[in-house]
């Protein structure tokens, strides 16, 4: 029998480190689940709107103009857009802040010895913080590119919308015709699908989906919704890059 000594590593955390935070883990998870489902519903509707690009410039620009004029005169001009923007901005703040809090608590709770070499089945779960950060960057880029038209994110030919006309179609095509931007949009959609697929399934747990049939429905729905968003959206930059959409 031989005895060999290997390197010294730090010991475990003591049980004295108990936490009484202002915002409990349970409430952080509820905030993340609700805001995450708001985002999922938004990107699904956004994707359906994007598909109008296949009806041509006239339809797409008319849809963009309608979004600004929707529910007039009950809402002021761009009223619907601003309601959506405020809801999404509040959701984004809550989602990111709670994610940061939970990520820190998770690392503290696990202690110095991380789990390593996990199998592929938990890939989407493990990559949630990474896909989340990529999406955060994508959202900022996307708004600068196609909403505000700020360079260098936007294409050189960006034209802002006026009260009764929109150049959304031309802006979109010009943006995606830049190869590196088109590829970035396509990759971001894959990241989005991974994030949404695991996000909806996690939200189902956070909001207490225990029924057998309900869970079977939700696990399928999370995958199908993510896939529909992926296929609907990714087709646009790919077809622009291939020269089909011009």
């Amino acid at each position: 029998m031989s005895t060999k000594t290997t390197e010294i590593r730090p010991g475990g955390r003591s049980t004295s480190a108990r936490r009484h935070p202002l915002l409990s883990t349970f409430w952080c998870k509820i905030v993340m689940a609700v805001t995450g489902l708001i985002f999922s519903a938004f990107v699904l509707v956004h994707m359906f709107g994007n598909l109008k690009v296949y009806q041509g410039a006239e339809h797409f620009n008319a849809y963009a103009a309608w979004l600004r004029a929707a529910f007039e005169p009950v809402l002021p001009h761009e009223g619907l857009l601003w309601v959506l923007r405020l809801v999404l901005l509040a959701s984004l703040t809550g989602h990111v802040v709670c994610a940061a809090i939970l990520w820190r608590r998770a690392r503290l709770a696990r202690g110095p010895f991380r789990r390593r070499h996990l199998p592929l089945r938990s890939f989407t779960a493990r990559t949630m913080p990474v896909t989340g950060l990529v999406l955060l960057f994508f959202v900022v880029f996307h708004v600068l590119d196609l909403t505000t038209g700020t360079s260098p994110a936007a294409s050189d030919s960006f034209a802002a919308a006026t009260t009764d006309s929109s150049h959304a179609y031309e802006n979109l095509i010009a943006s995606f015709q830049r190869p590196e931007v088109g590829v970035f949009y396509a990759l971001a959609m894959i990241v989005l699908a991974l994030h949404v697929a695991h996000g909806i399934w996690t939200a189902a747990h956070d909001l207490g989906a225990t029924g057998r049939r309900l869970r079977a429905t939700l696990v399928a729905a999370s995958g199908v919704i993510a896939l529909v968003i992926l296929i609907g959206n990714i087709s646009i930059p790919i077809l622009v890059l291939l020269g089909v959409l011009q």
């Binding site: 049980t15 108990r18 936490r19 009484h20 935070p21 409990s24 883990t25 349970f26 952080c28 998870k29 939970l102 608590r105 998770a106 503290l108 709770a109 696990r110 789990r115 996990l118 089945r121 938990s122 779960a125 493990r126 949630m128 695991h198 399934w201 996690t202 747990h205």
Partner: peptide, 13 residues
């Protein structure tokens, strides 16, 4: 549970 243990991210491990 929240005092000493971490949040669940549905890893399923």
């Amino acid at each position: 549970m929240d005092e000493e243990f971490g949040p669940c991210s549905v890893f399923g491990e």
